[in-house]
Simulated scan of single mutants.
Amino acid sequence: MPLLARPVAIRRANAADTPRIAAYVAAHVDGTPFHLAEWSTAVATGCGQQDRYLIAEGADGAIAGVLPLTLVSSPLFGTALVSAGFGVDGGVLADDATTAQALADDAWRIAAAEGATSLELRGGPAPDGFHTNSESYLGFVRDLAADDDTQLLAIPRKQRAKVRKSFDKGLTIAVDQDRAAHYRIYAESVRNLGTPVFPKALFAAVLDAFGDAADILTVRHDGAPVASVLSLYWRGTVYPYWGGGTEAARGLRANDAMYYALMNHARTRGCTRFDFGRSKVGTGAAAFKRNWGFEGQPLAYHVRTADGAAPRSVNPLDPTYARKIAAWKKLPLPVANLIGPWLSRGLG
């Protein structure tokens, strides 16, 4: 079909489009925080990657679809165009299948022009020419209860017992926006899991971009931060996105206290849903979320690759990474924090 015969016109978004994009995403049934222009801008700012956000407009100038794109370049993992970069969702969002396909086709042209060997769409419809993977990731979402006591009772018995044990550990919990404490804790947590930490600038950029729609909840013991989580709030759902605990957190049940406290805190902010995020199938993280009573639902991710190119692999469960993960766990924390951000910015 000739370009001029398209039912929509597609172009790169600019800063003036941000409010219009926000309104469109908020009104779309499948909209997520990762579709917002603020997310793409924060990722580009915080990780030094490039934003390629696309919008489709009808003849009347109204937005008919959006596709947030991040050009992720890494000497280790190659170059890929990702929607949405560093998000768990953010695939094509459109009024109809024709517009969705037009956005995906334009994205593929951008990928080819930028030298990207793959285009990854996290969620949304599967455009023609893409392979869909629904076997690798699960999403965990459920409703929040009406009050604190009912929320506690909604947690399965064994996990509820762990939460109750945290009540006697002398923990204090506050939403205090302690960015420095959150980063220290998160960096230690992911090092212990064998993965590199994201750049500190990414967390700062997300918090700055989302303003009141994001916060940090921190758990302390004897005044020392031991667990912390950075969460997003969107259309009545809380997204605990980057959370973790120190080595001491396990014995203190600090992570258990943290997520229960976040559920109650989110309710005070008007939330009715708790999105525990994605986890890879067969991992301890997925089992942890099931222990809280969350049922995993398959997430559909779509990828298109250049002829002869294999999809990039950034899955820690890939056997080729096993030795590297084991070695990373043994790195001194200052070393891991020094080189981790350089590596992780290419994971996208």
Rank of each mutant, 00 (worst) to 15 (best):
M1A: 15
P2E: 14
P2K: 02
R6E: 13
V8P: 03
V8W: 03
A15F: 06
P19F: 03
R20W: 09
R20G: 11
I21Y: 11
A22C: 12
V25E: 03
A27R: 14
H28Q: 13
H28A: 15
G31A: 11
L36K: 02
A37D: 04
V43D: 01
A44V: 10
G46T: 05
G48E: 04
D51I: 03
G58Q: 13
G61R: 03
A64E: 15
S73H: 05
S74R: 01
F77N: 00
V82P: 06
A84M: 02
V88D: 14
D89E: 15
G90W: 05
A94M: 10
D96P: 07
A97V: 10
A97I: 01
Q101K: 06
D105C: 09
D106I: 11
A107D: 10
W108D: 00
A111D: 13
A112H: 09
E114W: 12
G115M: 04
R122Y: 00
P125Y: 03
A126S: 14
F130E: 01
T132E: 13
S134C: 12
E135V: 05
S136V: 08
V141N: 01
D143I: 05
D147Q: 10
D147V: 12
D148N: 13
T150R: 08
L152D: 07
I155F: 09
P156E: 07
V163W: 15
R164N: 09
K165M: 09
S166I: 01
S166Y: 04
F167D: 06
D168E: 14
D168N: 07
K169N: 07
K169M: 14
K169I: 04
L171K: 02
L171M: 04
A174E: 15
D176R: 10
Q177G: 02
A180C: 08
A180I: 05
Y183T: 08
R184N: 11
I185R: 05
I185P: 04
Y186H: 03
S189T: 03
R191N: 12
R191F: 01
R191P: 12
P196W: 07
F198T: 05
K200D: 09
A204F: 07
A205M: 12
A209S: 15
L217P: 00
L217G: 01
D222T: 08
P225D: 06
S228H: 12
Y241R: 06
G243K: 00
G243N: 01
A254S: 01
N255Q: 14
N264M: 05
H265A: 07
A266D: 06
A266R: 12
R269L: 08
R273C: 08
F274C: 00
F274K: 02
D275Y: 14
G277Y: 11
K280E: 00
A285I: 00
A286G: 10
A286Q: 06
A287Q: 00
R290K: 06
R290Q: 15
G293S: 05
E295A: 09
G296C: 07
G296I: 13
P298W: 08
P298Y: 01
L299F: 01
Y301Q: 04
T305H: 01
A309N: 09
A310N: 13
R312M: 13
V314G: 04
N315P: 09
L317K: 13
A322N: 04
I325L: 15
A326V: 00
A326L: 03
K330F: 05
P332E: 05
A336H: 08
I339A: 06
W342T: 15
R345G: 02
L347S: 03
